[in-house]
Each structure stands twice: as structure tokens, then as C-alpha cells.
Design a protein around this nucleic acid. Structure first.
Lengths: 212, 212
DNA sequence: AATCTTTTGTTACTCGGTTGCATTTTCGGG
DNA sequence: CCCGAAAATGCAACCGAGTAACAAAAGATT
């Protein structure tokens, strides 16, 4: 039973891709707020309602790529190797993503990726929408943490919130390094150090610094 | 030099107040999304552009009250009594707010306050806007923490992010307790315990639970 | 009272997003 | 191969948030 996608499904995928690609291209060229959804629809030769049947909001034309990463933290925890702690697995994974120059770490100097990150981090409506995605991410991670360590829901929830928050700060920090004109060669070691600092803090708490 | 506000200024304050009050009243009665800004403007007998001269967005008709609390965490740290740690001051302050049934803690069973919180926590656009306010709060707290403990910007930024995040979770948790039908009498002790748990975790880190 | 400045109302517009309905396109079975 | 159901699209009109331009009104100043 080969389940070929079928013509209809293939066309849909192509339209979806065309919409997202064209949109991002236009947004990067002229700015997110300077391009209307009608412009995007016209460029793809599709009607406005059709565009919204594919993407529920203008922001999603940009963010669905990031949204695809959803649940990554939870998966890392669930899929960690035996004997590894949840926090250890997350730390290791973050270093890996950094080393791979994964765009979501903010550390990638491909011009297009950089422009993309600039756009996301400087456009309020995109940032706002991004937060909603993180909310889901947080829930999933909380679930994985309960599973992994048997802690109560509140503790796991608090931990998940802190971890996701820290990831966001780190990514933003990395983006800022590049935005300030530093090169990846210079920024990467700093980013690793920052990540270690952040995870040390997560693990050992704020007490040593802020409770004496 | 008595600097009386002057008629103009007084009128402006009154209009602003009327807009906010009327808006909240209508929103609570019929739902945030079921009331248009035109409705609010009409009810106050003011034109739509005038409304937007007072509040930059519909959401701010609701949130400006919360926004007025902005920088509270930073102030608590800056204004802590001698010999008190930043974290200790914040913890104590949170318990105080809880005891005072401050609406921002989520724990208040006045029907209007409850309806207000229900609205804020269940309306995505309000939630999104709230996040932006917290962002500012976070920056301010980070600044205060640098001042207070001489830590570097990254550490202070991470700490501030974690603290603000935890406050949000606690408030949301408290709101949920009430939303689930529990009374304040029952929920308050739990809320204190939750807060202690959260601050213990903040101080001592996630290591003990998630790094073994 | 005359004037200057700030605030307001009116009208009209842009843009994101939705709705209803007719039309086209794909799929599936005979 | 054809025909009908189901899905996807287009069209046109609409709603609500927010803004721009400009004229009218009201408070402040001398």
C-alpha cells in the first residue's frame, strides 16, 4: 500500500511552500510591515482567502519554520541516553546545535539567515507570536520532565519555564553578538561559554549570586 | 508655586479614566472580542481617533493598570532593607502581595477582579501584550540586580528572566486554583507554599531535581 | 478680547482577517 | 471514459483595528 501523496496533496504542498518562500523573500527585501498579505497573495497568484486557508496569520508565513521545531526540548529529555540527566542532556544538545550553527541558536552568519533573525527579533508582532509557540514548547517540556524525574507538576512547570526562558535569552544574546558586528569565529566560543554559564546557573540556582 | 493641574489636564485625566473604566466594564459584560473600540468610544462619547490618542492599542485599555506596576520587582530589589538579599527581598515581597490579595498575584476572589483575570488569561491578544510589558520589567530588574550584586550583565539578565518567568507562572497557577472553583481560604496557604517552593528552586537551582 | 496652542471631531483610508457563495478541480466509482 | 461527490479556489463584500489630513473647538496666555 504505497501511499502516494496524490495530486491534490502535492499541489497543496507546493502552494504552501510557494507562499512561505515568496513571503519571506518579500519580507526580507522590503520589511515585514512594508509588505501586505495582498502583495504576497498576488505574487503567488492566489487569492487572499486562500492564503489564509494555508496560514492562519501573516506572522505564520514566517514562523511556521520555527514552529516545526516545536517540542524539541521535550524530545531531547525523553530521548536522552541512559544515565544522562535531563539538564545534562539539554546542555549537551544546546552545545551541539551551537556547533552546527543551527539558526535557532541565533549564531549563523549566512546573510539570509542573519536577515531572517534580524527581522524576527526586531518585529514586535513576530516576537509576540513566537512567545505563543514557546508556551506550547514549555508545556511539552514540563510533561517530559515529570516523566523523566517524577517531580510534581508545579516543580516541573517551573523548571520548564526557566529552561525555555534561558534558551530564548541565549539565542537573543547570540543574535546580538552578530548584530553588533562580531563574526561567528569570535562569537562561537563566547556562546559556548554563555551557555555553560546559563546551565551552571540553572543547575546551581541563583542563591550563590543573589542570596547573600 | 501651587501647580494645580489646570482645567485641561483635569479633563484629560477624566477622559482617560472614563475610557478605561467604560471599556473594562463593557469587556467584562460582553467579552473583549465582542466589543469594538468604536463601541467604547461611542459609550464615552468620544471619537475613535481620540480614543487612540489616549491608548495606543485596544489592549492597553485593559492593561494600563497592570502596566502601572511596571518596575516593581526592580524597585523591591533597589529598595530592600540593609542586610537583605535581592532574592530574599523578592520572596518576602511576593508573600506580602499574596497576603494583601493583590490582584497581580492572581489570588483575589472579588468577582470583578476574578472576571478581569479570567479575561486577561484567556484572551490571546491580551496575553501577548502582557508579555511585552514583562520584557521591560525584566530589563529593569536586570539593571537593579547588577547594581545590587555587581554581577555581570549576562548573569543578571538570566536571573531577571528566570525571576520574572517564575512570577508569571505563580500568578497563573493561583488564577487556575480559583478558576477551578477553589476558594481563597483554601488556595492562599497553597499559594504561599507554591511561592516558597518556587523561590527555593530559584535559589538552589534545578540540579537537585533534574541533574541526577 | 485677541491670539496661540492643544485637543478634538470628521472623513476617509490601509491592512489583517473573515464570510458566503458560485466555480473550478481532483478524486473515486461505475 | 464519464459522472457525481468532495475538496479547493476565487470573488466580492464585509468587519474591526489603527492612522492621516484637516478643519473646528476649547483652554491657556497676554
Amino acid at each position: 500500500m504505497s501511499d502516494e501523496p496524490g495530486l491534490r496533496e502535492r499541489k497543496k504542498q507546493r502552494t504552501r511552500q510557494a507562499l512561505s518562500d515568496t513571503a519571506v523573500e518579500l519580507f526580507l527585501k522590503r520589511g515585514f510591515d512594508q509588505v501586505s498579505v495582498a502583495d504576497v497573495a498576488a505574487a503567488v497568484e492566489v487569492s487572499k482567502p486562500t492564503l489564509f486557508r494555508y496560514f492562519p496569520a501573516k506572522e505564520d508565513l514566517v514562523l511556521h519554520r520555527i514552529a516545526d521545531h516545536q517540542g524539541e526540548a521535550a524530545r531531547v529529555v525523553s530521548g536522552r541516553t541512559a544515565g544522562q540527566s535531563p539538564l545534562g542532556a539539554l546542555r549537551a544538545h544546546f552545545h551541539e546545535r551551537l556547533e552546527a550553527h543551527d539558526p535557532i541558536t541565533g549564531l549563523n552568519d549566512n546573510p539570509t539567515v542573519r536577515a531572517f533573525n534580524d527581522m524576527v527579533y526586531t518585529t514586535p508582532s513576530l516576537l509576540a507570536r513566537l512567545v505563543r509557540y514557546s508556551g506550547r514548547d514549555e508545556e511539552l517540556l514540563a510533561g517530559a520532565l515529570v516523566e523523566a524525574s517524577g517531580s510534581d507538576a508545579l516543580t516541573a512547570g517551573l523548571a520548564a519555564a526557566q529552561i525555555i526562558t534561558v534558551h530564548q535569552r541565549l539565542a537573543r544574546e547570540n543574535w546580538r553578538k552578530l548584530a553588533d558586528g562580531r563574526g561567528v569565529g569570535e562569537a562561537l566560543p563566547e556562546a559556548h561559554a554563555d551557555a555553560d554559564r546559563a546551565y551552571d546557573l540553572l543547575g546551581a540556582g541563583l542563591g550563590a549570586e543573589f542570596d547573600r
